[in-house]
Design a protein around this nucleic acid. Structure first.
Lengths: 304, 304
DNA sequence: CGTAAGATTGAATTAATTCAAGCTCCGTGG
DNA sequence: CCACGGAGCTTGAATTAATTCAATCTTACG
């Protein structure tokens, strides 16, 4: 189908299928040699686990699971047992609203982690569905959480907390998009976000295939599918993009970026390059909640 | 001012002001005796740390910090050093949009944790501002992350990951509210959410004081302040609530709940009572993303 | 007591949704 | 191999609802 540059590359011999009735024990450090060629955007939690596992007597089995298009990786209410790392493919997460509709809460590409929302209550509060044939690594949470720190490296649990926090940052970007009240800016922001994530994994950022329907995009953005369709059409007649069904080619970034300017930095998700002076000063001078608020004074410590 | 039923109750002698030029060392298990009377909604991470600290040689200093109304607890771009637990008061988190406006991302009450978004990059990506005079515990992240597991109890880092995940669940509730496209249902959901969180800390759920402005509510809900005001007015003329400026009294829950029905269970944030059959079946039969999607087949494991 | 911030209310505007019809493309089965 | 059917996408027109702009009111605070 398409290139999968981010395979974890676990050798098959070290991979234990999850549905296997008996999990054969493998050496605690044996399962990670194959992780080296993996090109995950962020250091894979598995690599972190490998270091710890080498030093501990604990056993660690990382399985793989294939999820075909339309299939469910986990469901709302199911016990949380695994954190899933996408090896290849695309998935969405969503949850059921009480009227039977579903709300799409995220899209996940190769190298990204799914299922972290289950950690809070020990049960998943959303479900994950493959948008195309996909495969994931299944990292057993309990075992991972028990692994101690290896030398100066942080314990896997610490790394995990960091990765959950990354999801919070991504949610913040989603809120920045939601703050764009109009349809066109939101869709533009969505394209920019997608493009950035494609580039992160070595794919073209200006020409890619949408793996999700207009309805799913609309749900994620808080728009109807018609509004999404019209936004695409509008961009196309302006000559900013070419779009045919689910294949998109961006011809001109400038206008799209201008459209979603207020959310641009949140969407582009750049690593913070030191303290961002501009934003800091915006905070000091008193950013507005539509109406200008009082300047942000600095909090004083409590005297002992 | 008002009752503070959720004080951590750290004895003053064990509390080290953060701005003190030199942090005096205190016994690693000395700072937590006072945590016992603390009535946090979820088990406080500090209690978890206490157990670990007792067994380790590490030192752990938990400071307190007073944040007066309008003051900033931390800012975007600042290094992430502490997780903050609200002792009393109310804070909001928000971030600056690139056009200078600010987007409110959350409200935090006594017993809740703030600042977890900073974990991802080691820097805060939002700022936290007190909506009234408040006080927080400052839990030093690095030190906490290094604490090992104490016996069968999980390491503080594991508990931390869980708490970050709880924020993800809360974000999901916010997405459920955003899925209510109209103003009145969103405001109704906001009231329900607030009410639930008041009750959680032993306060009245039907009569409370809003600590945030209409503009802040609007920013959080994706509405203009006028729309929020009109929604309140509309509820009042229907006889469902009494509202005068920032004091709210709910007279009739039913209509408010009906109004935001699709998001009700997400907003009420009930602990999952076992596997939720209803929702599970909704998933199996194929919940809709506005247009009905294919039934969710079950993923098959990869054969070894 | 005066001022300013926050809240309310009204009227005009704007934009998304809704409803409906038609189209394209893909997979299936005759 | 081609026809059929359906899912997904597009497009148009009417409707609906939120936003915008503006004026007024209240209240907290200096």
């Amino acid at each position: 189908m398409h290139a999968h540059p981010n395979l974890h590359g676990l050798p098959a011999a070290n991979v234990v299928p999850l549905a296997s009735p008996a999990f054969p024990s493998i050496p605690s450090d044996g399962g990670f040699a194959g992780c080296v060629p993996c090109q995950l955007r962020q250091e894979c939690i598995a690599a972190c686990m490998a270091r710890s596992a080498r030093q501990s007597a604990g056993q660690l089995l990382i399985g793989r699971r294939r999820v075909r298009k339309g299939e469910c990786l986990y469901r709302e209410g199911q016990p949380f047992r695994f954190v899933y790392a996408v090896r290849y493919g695309t998935l969405k997460t969503a949850f059921s609203l009480d009227d039977g509709d579903e709300q799409v809460s995220g899209f996940f590409f190769a190298g990204e982690l799914i299922g972290l929302e289950g950690l809070a209550r020990g049960r998943h509060v959303s479900h994950a569905v493959a948008l195309e044939d996909s495969e994931v690594c299944c990292i057993p949470y309990e075992e991972m959480a028990r692994l101690p720190a290896a030398g100066s490296a942080p314990a896997p649990a610490v790394r995990l907390a960091q990765l959950v926090s990354s999801e919070l940052v991504r949610d913040q970007a989603a809120k920045a998009i939601a703050a764009l009240r109009q349809a066109d800016p939101r869709v533009a922001a969505f394209l920019l976000m997608l493009s950035g994530r494609m580039r992160e994994r070595g794919l073209s950022g200006s020409e890619f295939e949408l793996r999700m329907s207009r309805a799913e995009i609309g749900s994620y953005l808080g728009l109807t599918l018609e509004s999404v369709s019209r936004a695409f059409a509008s961009f196309a007649v302006q000559g900013w993009i070419e779009v045919h069904k689910r294949s998109v080619r961006v011809l001109s970034w400038g206008p799209l970026e201008r459209l979603c300017l207020p959310a641009l930095s949140a969407v582009q998700d750049r690593q913070v390059p030191g303290v961002d002076r501009e934003r800091e000063s915006a905070c000091v001078t008193g950013a507005r909640t539509r109406t200008r608020s009082a300047p942000l004074r600095c909090a004083t410590p409590v005297s002992a």
